[in-house]
Simulated assay, not measured.
Amino acid sequence: MNSKKLSGNGRWEASRMMLPEHREVLEERSHPGSIETKKAQIPTREELEMIRDAVLLPVMLTMIEKNGKEITLSMNPLRKLYSVATLALMNRVHLELAAVNRELRERKIKIFKDDREDTDLHFRYICRGYEDKFSIMRDVARASISVKIGKHIQNISAELNKKV
């Protein structure tokens, strides 16, 4: 009866005075390959950033396109300049998105949109068999997109300054 209460409750295992390294060796001996498999499946920080970019870049493209259409329809005398700048920005973002998607495919990572009705963006991803969910608050998404747009504009500006 005592052993039933003690096993599986977490307290007994924690009080055995086992170092994490020893626990990994013990688990590896009882289930060969399982620890390395688990570690290999969990996405790295870089992969998580790529997943975030794969989610945000299409939203960013939509925002830029919408603003570009508004500028084109406006009566602003600089609308042609703004339209050209918008196209240059969209081309850069599209190239970045293509590169991110290509890298995700090579690393066997898939992303799926989760259809929840609230203000956040919800997604699922599968990374080499490891499946998880993540959400991005709309305010955080907007801030991240603003930063990315700023970096692209800065790069375009730097390239134009080199040519002049």
Score class of each variant (00 low, 15 high):
K4E: 07
K4S: 08
N9C: 05
A14T: 03
A14H: 03
M17T: 07
M18A: 11
L19T: 09
P20T: 05
R23S: 04
E24C: 10
E24P: 03
V25D: 13
E27Q: 15
E27H: 12
E27C: 14
E28N: 10
E28S: 15
H31A: 15
I35L: 05
I35C: 03
E36I: 09
I42R: 05
I42Q: 07
T44V: 12
T44G: 01
R45Q: 13
E47C: 05
L56F: 03
V59A: 12
L61D: 00
M63E: 12
N67V: 09
G68C: 06
E70T: 15
N76F: 04
R79A: 00
V84D: 12
T86D: 04
L87T: 15
N91H: 14
V93A: 05
V93H: 02
H94A: 14
E96K: 08
V100P: 01
R102N: 10
L104V: 01
E106D: 05
K108D: 07
K108M: 03
I109H: 02
I109N: 00
K113G: 01
D115C: 09
D120I: 03
F123R: 02
I126W: 06
C127K: 00
R128C: 09
G129V: 03
Y130L: 04
Y130N: 02
Y130A: 01
I136Y: 08
M137N: 13
R138Y: 08
R138V: 09
D139C: 06
A143G: 11
S144G: 14
S144M: 14
S144H: 14
S144T: 09
I145M: 14
I145P: 01
K148N: 09
K148L: 08
I149C: 03
N155C: 11
N155E: 14
S157G: 08
E159W: 04
K162D: 12
